[in-house]
Amino acid sequence: MAFFTHHTEKVLSRCNENRLLALDVLRGITITAMVLVNNPGSWSHIYAPLKHAQWHGLTPTDLIFPFFVFMMGISIGIVIQRAKSFPIQHTKIWVRTLKLFGLGLFLFLFYINFQQAEFSWLEDRLYKIRFMGVLQRLALVYIITYYIAFYTNLKAQKIILIGILIGYWAINAFVPYYDGAGNKFVGELAFGNSLPAWLDNIVIGSQHLYYKNAQPFAFDPEGLLSTIPAVASAITGILVANVLNNAKLEKLNKVKTLATYGVGMLFIGYLMSVIVPINKQLWTSSFVLVTSAWACIMLAGLIWLLDIKGYKKWSAPFVVFGVNAIGFFVFSGVLARILLMIPVGNTSLKGHLYHQYFSQIISPTFGSFLFAFSFCCICYLVFYKLYQKQIIFKV
């Protein structure tokens, strides 16, 4: 207990007073959840809350990505006034965007299957590179949202948000599209059969998409058209930043305002879901509202718990991950791929570790979760050392 207290005090003592602690903690909780979800010991043994919804619907795991987009919007909203005073910032924004996009491509390309003699990195990775992905979507949303925040006021941002939500629903509901045989579709929101899927298949091509074999259209869950409503998720973050930037509001009033926003979006989102299903892979308008609502409510709760009540010690591990979220994401991705690439007998090092040491602990599912937790702990040791040296990976 004394060690934990000493450790947390060391972490919190290094916190930058100019940063919003609750935002770093929320970011840390979110990236930790993402790494847990992405690194089970076995994909055949996963607890239900750590799975994505099969199609329509929402699980805790489905909140992770939109939380990141929401927090990106908050970060943009917090610094945008300073950015308006220094137009040279535009160059930095483009460099940051290209770095994010490039890191996403790098994570796809960083893989060689040493267990298959016929594997060709050129044929199987480079020539079939997946152009879209988590970091690529963050990059596109970042650059678009930045310019929206830079060139518009609060009223215009609200109008753009509403316009995207209604417009995205309308084009999915009423714009017709055709398959190769000339069959006409309209208003479909099925796996492999939707306007976003049709556009991905036409513009990007099936071999460069995540769901290459989906019928009648290959598509990507981080595709082109569905990136537009992801911008709406970021704009909700900008609106929240406007509350956080308001010096006239006391912290408790900010908490109440954010909670009110969250409850309001939750009500509208679930009401809308009667017509527009909540769907992460299509990033539907109802999905935007419901996920931003939960993010808003959670941020309000963290501000109340950390800043008003002063319960901070528990948050230390999430601070370590939160201030270095991109670095953590990329490092965990590289480490996970290395564990898959190293062959051990007829399996990979990851498979060997899971089956040899984890799978029989209580149950295969618990062992799979314990593997993911152990993976996070190893990452924590690395990033705690970086945190001590104040080494922050920025893009």
Rank of each mutant, 00 (worst) to 15 (best):
T260A: 04
I278M: 03
L209Y: 07
S286R: 00
I308C: 11
L381K: 12
A214C: 03
A372R: 02
F185G: 12
G187Y: 04
A197L: 05
D200G: 12
I162N: 07
I78D: 05
T5S: 14
W283R: 02
Y261T: 02
A316M: 14
V290S: 00
S374P: 10
A139C: 00
A300K: 00
T284W: 00
K256W: 02
R14N: 11
Y357I: 11
V330F: 06
A181T: 15
I166V: 14
G351Q: 02
I278D: 01
L244P: 06
H52I: 09
C15I: 15
V274W: 04
S368M: 07
F70T: 02
V35C: 08
Y168I: 13
G133I: 03
L271M: 05
G333Q: 08
R14W: 06
W94M: 03
L12N: 11
W304M: 06
S85F: 10
F131L: 15
G351T: 07
M272F: 08
S13C: 06
L189P: 10
N245K: 14
V276Y: 00
L335R: 10
T365M: 03
H355C: 10
S120H: 10
G192E: 15
T97K: 02
L12F: 10
V37S: 04
V35Q: 02
Q215D: 15
Q281P: 11
K309F: 12
T145I: 08
W55H: 12
I342D: 11
F287A: 01
V79Y: 12
L103G: 03
D220Q: 09
L299A: 00
L305K: 12
F371I: 11
V141M: 03
I268H: 00
F328P: 07
R19A: 13
S206E: 11
E118H: 15
L225F: 05
I64D: 01
K128F: 07
F174H: 09
G180P: 02
F174Q: 09
H56C: 09
G182H: 07
I129C: 13
I275K: 13
F371V: 11
I391W: 08
S13V: 13
Y380P: 05
Q54H: 14
V255F: 07
W304Q: 05
F331Q: 11
K128I: 13
W314M: 07
D62C: 03
G28A: 04
T365S: 08
S42M: 01
V334E: 08
K51P: 10
I361G: 04
L135V: 09
I235C: 01
K254Q: 03
A293Q: 01
Y147F: 11
F321I: 03
M1P: 11
V320P: 06
A325N: 14
L195H: 01
M132H: 06
T257Y: 00
L20W: 12
F65D: 04
G192I: 12
V25I: 12
R125M: 10
L306N: 01
I160T: 08
V395F: 06
N346D: 14
G41C: 08
L239S: 08
A247T: 15
Y354G: 06
T236A: 05
K256S: 07
F150Q: 09
G182W: 00
I171K: 08
